[in-house]
Amino acid sequence: MTIFNYNIFSWSTLTNIIDILVVWFAVYKLLMLIRGTKAIQLLKGIFFILIIKGLSWVLNLHTVSYMMDQVLSWAIIASIVIFQPEIRRGLEHIGRAPFWELGGYEEENASAKNLINSIDDAVQYMSKRRIGALITIQMNTGLEEYIETGIPLDSDITSALLINIFIPNTPLHDGAVIIQDNKVAVAAAYLPLSESTTIPKEYGTRHRAAVGISEVTDALTIVVSEETGGVMITRNGQMMNDLSREDYLKYLNAQLNNESEKKGFLASFTKNMRNGGEQ
């Protein structure tokens, strides 16, 4: 006798799984887009209100529950108005997402190599002459909140440009260069300063800014010390101090070529499937 007659491999089950995966992917990408921006503060506020709403329902606090309902209903409209720039940038980001450009691996790989070579040449030049520099590279987390504080450039990445920006007593040398989508997005940007007590006392504002941005985003930041010429890289709250040329090149290649390699695998797989289908 059959107890369960339900087919777990039915079309309905498959569509439910796809539905859950699509929603999960959309929420994940949304969080990655707004992480490190002002919009994340809104989400924290909404989450806090939801907790109060849940507690008021459990404790039968009808007035508090009603107030939270009103706040939530107006918060949706207010968020669209207040965060219109972030919404626009998010849609633009989706429009140029690599998912729709599987054939662009060679271009992405070349861009990563150009970025690494340009940074290497600039760092070597500035390190030998003890020219202070602060270069932040956007990874997955959006840096729009900090890009807005800088002077827009939207320029191709070259070592000459990076060197000229950080020449002392020039208008753009004080602050950070932010690199986004293989472009020098802005110069003279302000980054959050870390309050960590683990930062050595001899390190100045540039180093604290590099650690600060690594604590709130997943950005990769390179610092050239004005006092010693030493090179430091920060990411995810970690400091890598006094790096040799071999050390930082190895790290940059591992971090910046990682995404290109993933895209390359996907592009090659798609190309092979297409060629196989044509045979």
Rank of each mutant, 00 (worst) to 15 (best):
residue 98 P to K: 14
residue 104 G to W: 05
residue 7 N to R: 10
residue 35 R to L: 00
residue 86 E to M: 04
residue 278 E to N: 12
residue 116 I to N: 10
residue 261 E to Q: 13
residue 265 F to E: 13
residue 43 L to Q: 02
residue 267 A to T: 13
residue 138 Q to F: 00
residue 42 L to N: 09
residue 152 P to A: 09
residue 220 L to Y: 09
residue 265 F to S: 12
residue 162 L to H: 03
residue 221 T to W: 02
residue 63 T to M: 07
residue 99 F to L: 14
residue 180 Q to E: 08
residue 52 I to L: 15
residue 44 K to A: 11
residue 124 Q to V: 05
residue 126 M to Q: 05
residue 239 M to Q: 15
residue 168 P to M: 09
residue 213 I to E: 13
residue 211 V to I: 13
residue 190 Y to M: 09
residue 24 W to G: 13
residue 180 Q to L: 02
residue 58 V to E: 04
residue 142 G to H: 01
residue 25 F to N: 06
residue 165 I to M: 06
residue 29 K to A: 09
residue 15 T to N: 02
residue 240 M to K: 15
residue 18 I to K: 06
residue 134 L to H: 11
residue 65 S to F: 14
residue 22 V to I: 15
residue 237 G to A: 10
residue 202 E to S: 10
residue 260 S to Q: 10
residue 2 T to Y: 03
residue 101 E to Q: 12
residue 16 N to M: 12
residue 239 M to Y: 05
residue 176 A to D: 04
residue 252 L to A: 05
residue 47 F to W: 04
residue 48 F to I: 12
residue 30 L to A: 13
residue 89 R to T: 00
residue 262 K to I: 10
residue 166 F to R: 05
residue 203 Y to C: 04
residue 85 P to A: 03
residue 147 I to A: 09
residue 263 K to F: 01
residue 273 M to N: 08
residue 133 A to V: 01
residue 128 K to E: 11
residue 149 T to Q: 11
residue 20 I to D: 10
residue 165 I to W: 07
residue 96 R to N: 13
residue 92 E to H: 04
residue 68 M to N: 05
residue 212 G to M: 10
residue 88 R to Y: 07
residue 172 L to V: 02
residue 68 M to A: 15
residue 116 I to Q: 08
residue 36 G to N: 06
residue 249 L to D: 13
residue 86 E to Q: 14
residue 129 R to K: 15
residue 225 S to A: 08
residue 132 G to M: 03
residue 161 L to R: 09
residue 182 N to D: 14
residue 32 M to Q: 13
residue 151 I to M: 00
residue 267 A to K: 11
residue 216 V to N: 00
residue 51 I to A: 12
residue 190 Y to C: 06
residue 262 K to G: 10
residue 69 D to V: 01
residue 98 P to C: 10
residue 125 Y to V: 06
residue 111 S to F: 08
residue 250 K to P: 00
residue 219 A to S: 15
residue 99 F to I: 15
residue 112 A to D: 14
residue 256 L to R: 04
residue 120 D to R: 10
residue 240 M to W: 12
residue 54 G to S: 08
residue 139 M to G: 01
residue 263 K to S: 08
residue 240 M to Q: 13
residue 222 I to V: 15
residue 59 L to S: 09
residue 229 G to K: 08
residue 176 A to H: 01
residue 40 I to V: 15
residue 124 Q to M: 05
residue 50 L to D: 06
residue 265 F to R: 12
residue 31 L to T: 12
residue 22 V to G: 02
residue 225 S to C: 07
residue 90 G to Q: 00
residue 173 H to M: 02
residue 150 G to Q: 03
residue 109 N to K: 11
residue 45 G to E: 09
residue 3 I to W: 12
residue 54 G to R: 07
residue 76 I to M: 14
